[in-house]
Amino acid sequence: MPTPAPTGPLVTRDTLSTQLRALGVETGETLLVHSSLSSLGWVCGGAVAVVQALLDVLGPHGTLAVPAQSGDLSDPAHWTSPPVPREWWERIRANLPEYDPAITPSVGMGVIPETVRTWPGALRSAHPHTSFAALGRHAARLTDGHAHDCRLGERSPLARLEELSARVLMLGTGYATCTAFHLAEYRIPGPRVPVGRPAPGGGWEVLSEVSISSERFDELGHDFERDRPVTRGPAGAARARLFPLAAAVAYAEHWLPTHRPRADEFQHPPV
């Protein structure tokens, strides 16, 4: 079968940076980016061109942050995509490599975050499941001090992003990917759950973490966009959204308790 011709639009580093400026991304700001490369169209230079465009707009004093999660370093008892046989669980626990910020790949985040993670000068936080990678002025401040028992709460990069008045840029992704909403989960009374992962230095450990889930985040995002200012515009073939991270967290704090079942019904994030 012949290879099908690419479909447009043709997106370049320059056209994307122009669109990002038109959307309102500002030089020198701190930006948390969720992205889908395939949604943008035919990007000349792929993920590298997208990262270059983001850095062009943010400039030398800006900061680019992305989720760099590695949920595969988790308890196989809770794997669903796909599940593995129960008789494998103990051997998997015994043989999973420990988390290494320098070499552990991100999983399920997309090629753009993985490109940021491996970019020269990028820094990455220490949590083995929910790390963030960052480039730029505030990269060290964002990634330092990510507590091993705090996936996405007050001792994670999300809280540092809030302190820095960061904004969220969503490039062709829906609100189901909006990690900012998870910070609200830590501010709502809820249970803690056991979370297993490879221990530093070898072996297996189980820590207590706040229960989190992205259940109904799409609905939450719809209502947030209806009720609060969200800037929308094109990014290649995709729709981009830009909004303050703090506003999203505050809205979620009020929305989640009345629209979603108790957090203890969602004890483990899907893998």
Rank of each mutant, 00 (worst) to 15 (best):
P4M: 12
T7G: 13
V11P: 07
D14C: 02
L16N: 00
Q19C: 06
Q19W: 04
A22F: 06
L23M: 07
E29Y: 08
T30V: 15
L31M: 09
S36M: 06
G41Q: 10
G45C: 03
A47F: 07
V51S: 13
L58Q: 02
H61K: 02
G62M: 07
V66T: 03
G71P: 02
P85H: 04
R91K: 04
P97F: 12
E98F: 01
Y99D: 07
I112G: 13
P113T: 08
E114A: 15
E114M: 12
V116Y: 10
R117E: 00
S131M: 11
G136R: 10
H138G: 05
H138M: 04
R141T: 14
L142G: 12
D144E: 11
D144V: 02
A147V: 11
A147F: 12
C150Q: 14
R155F: 14
R155T: 14
S165R: 06
S165E: 08
S165I: 00
R167A: 01
V168A: 09
T173I: 08
C178E: 08
Y186D: 15
G190Q: 00
G190A: 01
G190K: 00
R192K: 05
P194N: 12
G196W: 12
R197E: 10
P198F: 13
G201P: 05
L207V: 10
L207F: 05
E215D: 15
F217M: 00
D218C: 04
D218I: 05
L220A: 02
F224Q: 02
R226L: 13
R228N: 01
A237V: 09
R241P: 02
R241Y: 10
F243A: 14
P244D: 04
P244R: 12
P244A: 13
A246Y: 01
E253A: 01
E253M: 13
H268E: 08
P269H: 04
P270A: 07
